[in-house]
Amino acid sequence: MTSHAPLTRRGLLKLGAGVAATTALAGGEPAAAAEGRFELTAPSTSLIWRKALYNTTVLQSFAIDNAHGHIYTVQVKNGSGSNAAGDLCLTKLSLSGSILGHMYLMGFGHGVQIGVEPSGSSAYLWTETDGVPIDGNSSRGTKLARFMFVNGQTLTTSSAALTKYSPVAGATNTTCTIDPSTNRLIMRYVSEGSFRFAAFTLSSVKAGSPDRLHDVAQPVGLGTFQGYAAYGNYVYVLTGTAYGDTNPAPGNTYITCLDLRTGEQVQRARSVAGQSLNYREPEGMGIQIVSGAPRLCLGLASEPGPRLASIFYKTELI
C-alpha cells in the first residue's frame, strides 16, 4: 500500500494554486481565483542576473509567457526625445535571459507595466498606447493595446496590427497586467485624480464588453510606483527608487499586497533582492508558473552605463 503524507494548509493552497494555474494556461478561466497569497517576507531567488536587453536604457517592466517559456521586457527606446515621445523597445528573452527578438512601439507611453497572453505558438502583448506627454519629459498611455509579437516589427499608435481597448471610459495613465492563474486582466488607471486597480475577465475585454469584477483604490503614500502583478484575489505593488545618497543600500524597495475584493492592504515588506547590484532600481513585476506552482517576480535595473536587467522571485504562499 502506498502511504501519503497528510495535506497541510500550505499544501492545500499550493494544490489549489496549481489547479487554477493549469486551467488558465490551458485556455480556460477558473470559476474562482486560487486562495492564498505570497509571503512577502520570504527570501527571493534569482531567475536572471544582469542581462542585457535590446536597447541600453533602464528596464521598465516585464511579463512572462508561461506557455512558451519566454520573458518580454519593455524599456524606453534609445535616443534623445524617446521618453517624452513615448517610444518603447520590447525585448523577447529566454528564461535564461538570452535575447530572442525585439520590437519598437512608437508613441505608446512609458511601459510602467505590461501583460502577455500566450496564443498558439506565439503570444500577444498588452501595453498602454496613445501616450500623451506629462511634465515635459515623459509619456503615459490613455488606452490599452493588444498586438502579436513579430520580431523586428515597428508599430505606431495607428498600426493596423493594434487592437485598442478602453475598459474604463475616460481613464488616463492606463497600464495593465494579466493574471495567468485566472486569465484576468488587471488595469491600473487614473480617475478623478486618483489611481485605481480594476479586474476584468480577459475574454470580456477582448469581446468589447468588459466585465468589471473588482475596482479598488490604490493606497496613497506607498512611494515611487514601479510596477504590479496579480495572482488570484491579490495585486502586488512594487515601489522604490534607485540607490543614491538619500537611498543607500539596502534601499527603499517595497512590495505591498492589496486585496482586490476590498482594497485592504494586507501586507507590506521591504525587498532586499539583488541588494549587491550597482544602481539597483526596482522595475516591473510578473507571475511565473512552474509545474503548476506560482512565483511572484520583481525586476531590477542595474549598472551605471548600459543598463542591465535582473529578475528575482518568491514562492512561499500563506
Rank of each mutant, 00 (worst) to 15 (best):
G240C: 14
G240R: 03
G240F: 13
G240P: 12
G240H: 12
T241L: 10
T241I: 14
T241G: 12
A242N: 13
A242T: 09
A242Y: 07
A242I: 05
Y243C: 07
Y243W: 06
G244M: 08
G244P: 02
D245K: 15
D245V: 10
D245Y: 13
D245T: 15
D245L: 15
T246W: 12
T246P: 08
N247S: 11
N247L: 03
N247W: 01
N247G: 05
P248E: 06
P248G: 04
P248M: 06
A249G: 10
A249D: 13
A249W: 05
A249S: 15
P250H: 06
P250G: 03
P250Q: 07
P250S: 10
G251E: 02
G251Q: 00
G251L: 00
N252L: 07
N252H: 11
N252T: 10
N252M: 07
N252A: 08
T253C: 14
T253R: 02
Y254N: 11
I255M: 09
I255L: 14
I255Y: 00
I255R: 00
I255K: 00
I255H: 00
T256K: 01
T256N: 03
T256S: 15
T256Q: 04
C257K: 04
C257R: 04
C257S: 14
L258S: 04
L258Q: 03
L258P: 00
D259C: 06
D259Y: 04
D259S: 08
D259M: 04
L260H: 01
L260G: 01
L260P: 01
R261Y: 06
R261H: 05
R261M: 09
R261E: 13
R261D: 11
R261P: 07
T262H: 09
T262M: 08
T262W: 07
T262F: 07
G263V: 02
G263S: 05
G263Y: 01
G263F: 02
G263T: 02
E264R: 08
E264M: 11
E264G: 08
E264F: 04
E264A: 15
Q265I: 11
Q265S: 10
V266S: 09
V266W: 03
Q267A: 14
Q267P: 01
Q267C: 07
R268D: 12
R268P: 10
R268T: 14
A269K: 08
A269D: 13
A269T: 11
A269W: 12
A269L: 11
A269G: 10
A269I: 11
R270K: 13
S271H: 02
S271Y: 01
S271E: 04
S271M: 00
S271Q: 03
V272A: 10
A273W: 01
A273I: 03
A273G: 05
A273F: 01
G274I: 07
Q275I: 07
S276I: 08
S276C: 07
S276P: 01
S276K: 14
L277D: 13
L277S: 06
L277N: 06
N278W: 04
N278C: 06
Y279M: 08
R280Q: 13
R280L: 14
R280M: 10
E281Y: 02
E281A: 03
E281W: 00
P282M: 08
P282A: 14
P282H: 13
E283G: 01
E283V: 15
E283T: 02
E283P: 05
E283I: 01
E283W: 03
G284V: 03
G284E: 05
G284N: 05
M285F: 01
M285S: 05
M285I: 14
G286W: 03
